[in-house]
């Protein structure tokens, strides 16, 4: 899990830089995301929600797993962070009419049953001209070798059976689903692990892990 924890700074920087740019702010100045309302869909225990709250964002963290939400709530409270955690689904949030400046769906679309319907729900949660930021895994021979054989079986970074390679999403498929839901895909960028420096970085190669940004019409 250690190597995957090291992925977090790369994801945070991606989200911070894109959202600060949208707000016309310097991402390296204090509180670059102040006032930005973010939904972290599939927030887990708050690995991403807490840093974004410290950067000034007003964060709603949603996860269908009630036990994750309980852990996240306790952790944020101990650290004095105000994060609105909810044990709920994207569909229920959309049903309540909630909307956000930015919606994050990090490492989640490869787990949902109907990606097209899921992206449609995310569109309902995103304000017009709002941003959707995603991280997922590409469906390529290389991703099978690295993400399934490597990460699950050889290195044991994640439990076996975490991922189903068949459900991995190619950028072209994502672009099509997003377009149908009223999003325009504006960026696809690879995320690569560097064994030498034991860190992740943005790359031009989206063949395994990649992140994407889309803007709602």
């Amino acid at each position: 899990m250690r190597a995957l924890h090291r992925l977090n700074p790369t994801r945070i920087a991606f989200v911070r830089d894109r959202l600060a740019a949208r707000a016309g702010r310097d991402p390296l100045k204090p509180q670059p995301l102040r006032g930005v309302r973010i939904l972290d869909m599939g927030c887990g225990a708050g690995l991403l929600a807490e840093p974004l709250a410290r950067l000034g964002a007003s964060v709603v963290g949603a996860d269908a797993a009630a036990e994750s939400i309980a852990v996240a709530k306790a952790h944020a409270e101990a650290g004095g962070l105000a994060i609105d955690y909810r044990a709920t689904t994207a569909e229920d949030l959309a049903g309540d009419g909630e909307t956000f400046d930015a919606v994050l769906a990090m490492e989640i679309i490869e787990h949902v049953r109907d990606p097209q319907a899921f992206v449609g729900t995310l569109a309902a949660l995103t304000k017009p001209r709002g941003l959707l930021l995603m991280a997922t895994l590409n469906r390529t021979p290389k991703s099978f070798a690295l993400a399934i054989v490597g990460a699950e079986y050889v290195l044991g970074w994640v439990p076996r059976g975490t991922h189903d390679w068949q459900k991995f999403v190619r950028p072209s498929e994502l672009a099509r689903a997003l377009r149908a839901a009223g999003f325009a895909l504006t960026e696809v960028i690879g995320v690569g692990y560097d064994l030498v420096t034991d860190s992740w970085r943005l790359t031009n190669d989206p063949s395994v892990n990649y992140m994407a940004m889309a803007e709602r019409a």
């Binding site: 924890h5 700074p9 911070r16 991402p27 390296l28 204090p30 709250a53 410290r54 950067l55």
Partner: peptide, 12 residues
């Protein structure tokens, strides 16, 4: 770490 919103006293 501050610029990534990370806990400054955390181990990494």
């Amino acid at each position: 770490a501050m610029r990534l919103g990370l806990d400054l006293g955390a181990t990494p």
